[in-house]
Amino acid sequence: MNQELISSLIHLMGMLFLVSSFAMIASPQLLSCIRFYAMHSFFLAAITALVAYGSHVEHLYVPAILTLILKTWVIPQIFFRLIGRLSIRRENDSYINIPFSLVLATFMVFAAYYATGDLKVLNPAFSNEFVPLAIATILIGMLMMVTRKKAISQVLGLLLLENGLFLMAVTMTFGMPLLVELGIFFDVLVGAIMMGIFVFKIRDAFDGIDTDDLTGLKG
């Protein structure tokens, strides 16, 4: 494959990456939200692999494969099982309605582009366009965490945020040292499992997983 093709492929993947984060915000059902997360991670893995191939950074293949296995398969499977066993209403309850969250998400993409637009100090190893994209993903992840009621959707928002950070690391510096990268994967996996366990505990104690109910501690 020639460089031109690879570079346009990466851009296509980047666009799809952004589209799938919007899809996560827009999906009214928890299950579809998880599927879009899997898609999101798939595009992330694709970008990583393409960067590794295009720029001859061999050590990036390891995180690409790990992303493919862990984030597009293992973690979504954990969540599917979780929802299956929780037997709860599967709507993706939100404090603000979906059209408005989409407007806010669009605003965040603009904000990310605006904020990084004239940052002379950042001159990434790979491509300029991915820094605002990564920051937009981080912001959308945060938006999802603060506007969603269900504990699971908050965890999904956190994972979305983490994907944004990962994209940032890959495109700015061709990834972190492998040892660190592996540790981060380990933390994400353990964190996801841990939060899954706590979602169960919340369900048992509060008869539901709306974090609205978690207001006992004040002062």
Partner: peptide
């Protein structure tokens, strides 16, 4: 449970931002 959930979520988000700084 409420305390542990808040602790888990808030600190994980906070630490994710620290990762940004390390990157």
């Amino acid at each position: 449970i409420e305390a542990a959930w808040k602790y888990l979520i808030l600190c994980t988000v906070g630490i994710a931002l620290a990762l940004f700084g390390i990157i």
